[in-house]
């Protein structure tokens, strides 16, 4: 009958259930979708993110020198489609959820990167430098190929270089799939 006293006592001891925010710290879940970020070292400018963006928040402007990728955070609905479909895994979600801002900062909340082409180390054609870890992944089986050098070659020069060195350039994921298929 007096079990309510127990609850009463527990409530007295446990203190308030209110989150101290905004006067104190609050918790942030690890996988919360705060805002979208682009890794300018990996972006290839293929436009897949713009194509799949549900809210049309991504703008991509290309010219002969390179391209500019712009994401307007005030239009991004954080659906994570760009993260899923980016072939280079250049998009990611930052857990920073502090999004409240005054009206004058409305168009300042953008994620913008200008990525420029670099001349190919062999033929001088303007090209996009390959990400270093991608080059490492591709040439993991060939110890005599320097990933740092090969990433600065354009596609046709890289094919020529591969043919000269009789290199077999294979994606790790392809090897894994082939092994699995062989096992089955």
């Amino acid at each position: 009958m007096a079990s309510f006293l127990n609850v009463l006592l527990q409530n007295l001891i446990s203190g308030p259930a209110t989150d101290p925010f905004p006067f104190g710290e609050t918790f942030t879940p690890k996988r919360i979708r705060g805002r979208i970020v682009v890794d300018p070292g990996r972006c290839l400018g293929c436009g897949m993110c713009r194509h799949v963006c549900a809210a049309g928040a991504i703008h991509l402007q290309k010219d002969s020198k390179g391209w500019t990728i712009t994401i307007w955070q005030d239009s991004c609905c954080l659906c994570r489609s760009c993260v899923t479909y980016c072939p280079m895994n250049a998009m990611s979600i930052d857990p920073d959820w502090h999004s409240a801002h005054a009206e004058e900062d409305k168009f300042k909340r953008i994620e913008q990167h200008t990525i420029s082409y670099e001349p190919c180390a062999r033929c001088g054609t303007p090209m996009r430098v390959m990400a270093l870890d991608k080059a490492r992944e591709l040439y993991a089986d060939d110890a005599d190929v320097d990933p740092e050098e090969i990433r600065h070659l354009c596609r046709s020069c890289r094919q020529m270089s591969d043919a000269e060195n009789s290199t077999v350039c294979v994606l790790r994921s392809d090897i894994n799939t082939a092994q699995q298929e062989g096992r089955d």
Partner: peptide, 30 residues
Amino acid sequence: SRLVPVDVNVPGCPPRPQAIMEAVVLARSI
């Protein structure tokens, strides 16, 4: 903002309750 003057924005789809609290604090100061 095309129809009425807006003072504070809190983006998100939807924003977190804490973010809304932040916006209310900002709105209060304005």
